[in-house]
Design a binder for these strands. Structure first.
Lengths: 196, 196
DNA sequence: CTTAGCATGTAATGCGTTACATGATTCC
DNA sequence: GGAATCATGTAACGCATTACATGCTAAG
């Protein structure tokens, strides 16, 4: 139920089309709440039904003068720009203050390592290296954002909070990479012990 | 698709009934992969169909002498103890070595804080305190396990790996609690600014 | 005799994922 | 003219969650 709320935040920050949201999601809220474009369109439709958001259908960008297409009514490339209505803002506030679950981690690699502990060594070094590289890359993305958006000493409350969220991500990834590297020596396979 | 694999590991470690698994899950694998009893029964049924596991139906515990119930055939309280077949073990190995997703965190509170940054302050201090307490409690659970199961200096590889998994959890929770406490001052609401 | 715990399921609903489908515009 | 990108959707399937349902055993 909270993909909707993630979308509401994005729309409050900037009214957008579904397509825009799908792209922006990948590099902001999407770092901690992923959603595909089909999900996004479905939830936008539902929220519009609930009266939480509304769309203005505009002709495709660029063409600011009114002449548009000669065939008039049959235009299909309309762009729907959604914005949040008061009811949507209320719903967001309601949800934010509602107690949430917490503690629901689900990391596949931890299950795999547990299997390796039980019936291994199975040769998880490659997979682990791959994941360390992914986390390292994300860490660097976060650090780039830090340099770009949070260099100023003076920040308002919103900016301080956003910075705290970013630091959460940075610490998590740093920790992940450090832990992964510590773990690597345990995953080395004795030569000639492959299972293929 | 990997609740099944988590179950396979549990069954390799110790053959059990669905009911047993549901309980044991809450305090071992379940720390990083949660599953309800309905999921467990469903996946056990499917894995049995695939020939990955098999069950021995036994009469209820305690009654070791064969006389059992007088009505014989109508017994309903049979207990199915599942164990892993070679095909199940093969499938587990296959899955462990298959590349996985990684990087799929989904934490509700981060989305809520982002909302608070955009349209707050909404009064998230209570919720945050609640979550910090949850993470603190889990941290203490982990530390108790550490004292109980990992005090020995000499450990075999499996034990070292399991210890590494536990340390992952401990660090994560420590980090969470520290981050949460740092964040708290930003969440204090100015008096008389409530939204109800 | 009633409550709590052991033990196994069915049904309904909804979210998430993948595949498929369409059409316009812009750039080379 | 063809490829990439913008833009919006439908359909199918499966896992996860919640509610509901059943029956036995052991303990107070």
């Amino acid at each position: 139920m909270s993909t909707q709320h993630a979308l509401l935040i994005s729309l409050i920050e900037k009214p957008s089309s579904g397509y825009d949201l799908a792209r922006r999601f990948d590099r902001s809220i999407g770092y901690f709440w992923h959603a595909t474009h089909q999900q996004i369109y479905r939830e936008l439709g539902r929220m519009a039904e609930h009266g939480w958001i509304a769309a203005e259908e505009t002709d495709q960008g660029g063409d600011a003068n009114g002449n548009a297409a000669p065939n008039g009514e049959e235009k299909k490339n309309r762009k729907k720009v959604y914005h949040v209505l008061p009811a949507g803002r209320d719903e967001l506030v309601r949800w934010v203050l509602e107690p949430g679950a917490g503690l629901d981690q689900r990391e596949e690699i931890l299950v795999k390592l547990r299997a390796d502990a039980a019936i291994g060594p199975l040769g998880l070094a490659d997979e682990m290296r791959r994941l360390i590289a992914l986390h390292q890359a994300r860490l660097e993305t976060y650090q780039a954002i830090e340099r770009r958006d949070f260099s100023d000493a003076r920040q308002d409350r919103g900016q301080q909070l956003r910075f705290a969220l970013l630091r959460r991500g940075i610490r998590f990834e740093q920790d992940w990479v450090a832990w992964g590297n510590e773990l690597m020596p345990l995953l080395a396979m004795p030569a000639g012990d492959r299972q293929d």
